[in-house]
Design a protein around this nucleic acid. Structure first.
Lengths: 124, 124
DNA sequence: CACCTCGTACGATAGGCATCGTAGTACGGG
DNA sequence: CCCGTACTACGATGCCTATCGTACGAGGTG
């Protein structure tokens, strides 16, 4: 029975509902450089991205682990789309629970990236 | 020679300067319930508080550890005042580096505290 | 169907960390 | 000077986690 799911893939993943998202978990999820990098990129493109889109300096196993932490903490939503697994920020949920929090974190990442010597694109 | 420090205690503690404060470290520091509780209380009174002011459900050793994490991450500033060690939020530094971040976290703590069944004072 | 790509599951490992207890240091008061 | 209070330092412990490698499942493509 692989046809009993007209609206998507038959594999679906456990997510916390909005009310279950805990601030501590979100803060913990965001306190890892790899995960912060993922979130930053997701926010930058403002759209779903597949796991394989990201070119992280860790193995695929580890990447899977990080995406799981982000999903289980409520930071991202993951859905299968064919063989790809798409990831999107749960911006609306986070902003409803913690108004202004996500935006300030995203701004902080960018600001810190510029403060420290990060590879920039502005007139090399 | 205990008189060579006219402006304060002779014991002073290592703090990161503003530019050294890293977002990941701050997020990590705030991802612990005990530390979040400390920060919440510091913000609530808006003033310095001694370590012994806090009545945390852990031993004093552990309390010391948490204050240290908060200090080394740049979230609080600690100074000795006699035998007491006073703690204050580094609100100005954090807001300069990460505008709006601290406020949104503080609001989020409060909001979450009300959402979950927290002991409230409003008409029991 | 054979095969390739994407991602998972599982086990191992090493390091981090929240916690405790005990022993010790700094400071102020009698 | 002795003592009490405030906080620290250090070692132990048990859990969590970031990482890897390998083996596997699910879904397109020829």
């Amino acid at each position: 029975m692989t046809t009993a799911d007209p609206a998507g893939s038959s594999r679906d993943l456990p997510h916390p509902v909005r009310e279950e998202i805990r601030l501590e978990s979100v803060l913990h999820a965001l306190s890892d450089p790899m995960r912060l990098r993922i979130v930053r990129e997701l926010a930058a493109v403002g759209d779903e991205l597949s796991c394989s889109h990201f070119d992280l300096p860790v193995t695929k196993s580890t990447t899977t682990h990080h995406f799981r932490v982000l999903r289980e903490s409520g930071v991202i939503r993951q859905v299968y789309r064919g063989t790809a697994k798409m990831n999107a920020l749960r911006g609306a949920d986070l902003d409803a629970l913690f108004p202004g929090f996500l935006d300030s974190v995203l701004a902080a990442i960018e600001g810190q990236g510029e403060r420290l010597g990060e590879p920039r694109r502005t007139a090399g």
